[in-house]
């Protein structure tokens, strides 16, 4: 289980949700690795050198070697983040841009115009997120972040990969009690994965 979290504020609700997710996974006896992109000060802007080596092997991208090791190891990826402008915060989008690389996440056979998936060992994707606005407004806006995970990333994984979407909508209007219940739900769902 590889948990990847992103929020710039140490005592944020997202961090709390991440901790509860890890608790739930540990409770169920899973082996958990956690990457906190803000603690790592992960640079979301793909460097020119990585872009130039887009079609080369992972040895050309030493800065992300540790993440690639986790990506090869995990069978479940859990993304924990606040939804900003309908999607993952830039820091997490940058993680997606930089870490899903050739020869690890996909490859491109000669002459093909579509990537061949290489994350067959990943069978479950989980997103845990909060939205400032309501479910209705998010539906209107098209839920880009949800589709990036459940479609763009999912096609790289095992064909039967299941996705779990655990979201708190209308965050700005939620009571303390509702927030607490959401955290309980996160831990419960993760303990039953």
């Amino acid at each position: 289980m590889w948990v990847i979290s992103c929020h710039p504020v140490p005592d944020s609700f997202t961090r709390a949700a991440c901790q509860r997710a890890i608790n739930g996974l540990a409770l169920a006896g899973h082996e958990v690795r956690h990457t906190d992109l803000d603690a790592d000060r992960f640079d979301p802007a793909m460097p020119a050198a990585e872009w130039r080596h887009h079609l080369d092997g992972p040895e050309t991208k030493p800065a992300i070697a540790a993440y690639l090791e986790h990506l090869r190891w995990c069978d479940t990826m859990v993304f924990v983040y606040p939804t900003w402008w309908t999607g993952q915060p830039a820091r997490m989008k940058g993680f997606i841009d930089r870490v899903f690389v050739n020869e690890v996440a996909w490859d491109l056979p000669p002459g093909a115009d579509r990537l061949r998936p290489r994350l067959g060992h990943v069978r479950r994707l989980v997103a845990i997120t909060t939205h400032g606005s309501s479910k209705f407004v998010n539906a209107l806006e098209g839920e880009a972040g949800k589709r990036i995970i459940t479609r763009a990333i999912r096609v790289l994984c095992h064909p039967l990969t299941r996705t779990s979407w655990i979201a708190l909508y209308g965050m700005d209007r939620r009571t303390e009690d509702e927030r607490r219940r959401f955290l309980d739900r996160v831990e419960h769902r993760m303990s039953r994965l």
Partner: peptide, 18 residues
Amino acid sequence: TWWSSMPAILKGWLERTM
């Protein structure tokens, strides 16, 4: 377009200016 969306640096520009 990378992974069906804009590069992180542009997403971050939206987040920080808008």
